Simulated assay, not measured.
Amino acid sequence: MSETLLEAPGDGVALIRLNRPQVRNALNQTVREQLAEHFAALATDPAVRCIVITGDERAFAAGADIRDMAERGAVEMYLRSNHRLWGVIAACPKPVIAAVNGFAWGGGCELAMHADLIIAGEGASFAQPEIRVGIMPGAGGTQRLTRAVGKFQALRMLLTGAPVAAREALAMGLASEVVADAEVLPRALELASNIAAMPPLAVQQIKEVVLAGQDASLDTALLLERKAFQLLFDSRDQKEGMRAFLDKRAPHYQGC
């Protein structure tokens, strides 16, 4: 059985499920490789406009598979080139929504932070507990977490390994919404459908500019925003959207 499952729950929406329930969806090398393959394919699929990634009701992903790493050496870890696999997810031009129930710990927290929106259940928790097994985050946990919640909250999590509950994660800026546990995936799919109905070029330009601009100077980021704004006036979707607004009808966006 595949350790990740790919589904098409609605128009323009792809759903990736982590499928290792026996180990609370811990991330081994096979899962990382399959995720990279899925994201590479979905990034260029014109039928897909938004991607949802989830686990199950017990765990989004409880971290990296310790059994898969415990006896590895530095050179072996280096030769895995896992940063390239994570990079495929980070480079996805389409919006990604993480639907998080239960544990999003270690690599699971890092995977959730690769998303653009995080919908968390009331019972979800987030943690970077790598320090408790003698290492540190290695897939962006120190950097993405600090950018999301700031230095002081990030270091509290990183240096203690302590988890934070969903409501605290929301207050810190580590989640977009918190909903009842049973509503996590339905809410994520609802948001994905809403985004999939938007003009794809504008959606992708918004994501690109936000991500590129967050580490640039304000002047540079505003320049990126301005150029992307101007570029969209050459799209058919811009004409369709504004004409539909003036005609008082629903627009039909084609992504061109």
Score class of each variant (00 low, 15 high):
T160H: 09
G102V: 00
A70E: 15
H114R: 07
N194M: 15
G255N: 03
E208Y: 06
A8S: 14
V88W: 01
V179M: 04
W86P: 00
L170C: 06
A166P: 07
S176C: 10
R20C: 09
A171T: 12
A120W: 00
G102F: 00
D45W: 00
S193W: 00
G87Q: 05
P137V: 03
A112K: 00
L18H: 07
N101Q: 08
E190F: 07
Q34R: 15
V52D: 12
L35T: 03
M172S: 07
A99Q: 02
A188S: 12
A8D: 12
T44W: 00
V210A: 14
G161Y: 14
E225D: 14
V184C: 13
D247A: 15
I119M: 06
P163G: 02
E122A: 15
I195H: 06
L159Y: 05
L85F: 09
D215Y: 05
L145V: 04
S176N: 09
M77Q: 10
D11A: 15
R249Q: 12
G241N: 05
R24C: 13
G106C: 11
L189Y: 04
A212W: 00
A165C: 14
F39C: 07
V96E: 08
G10A: 15
Y78F: 14
C109L: 15
A14S: 12
L231N: 12
A115D: 04
A115T: 02
I119Y: 04
G12F: 00
V133Y: 13
Q143K: 10
Q214F: 06
Q143M: 14
P199F: 01
Q34V: 04
P186Q: 11
A154W: 03
L174S: 10
P129W: 08
Q143C: 08
A124N: 04
A64F: 15
A188E: 05
L85M: 07
E130C: 06
A104M: 01
L159R: 04
E122I: 02
E7Y: 08
D247E: 15
V203T: 14
R49I: 05
D237C: 04
C109D: 12
R24E: 11
D234N: 13
R144V: 08
C256N: 11
A154K: 01
P21A: 10
S176L: 09
V203S: 10
F245C: 06
C50I: 01
L79F: 10
V96L: 09
F126E: 09
S235K: 02
E177D: 13
Q29A: 12
A26F: 02
K207M: 11
A216T: 03
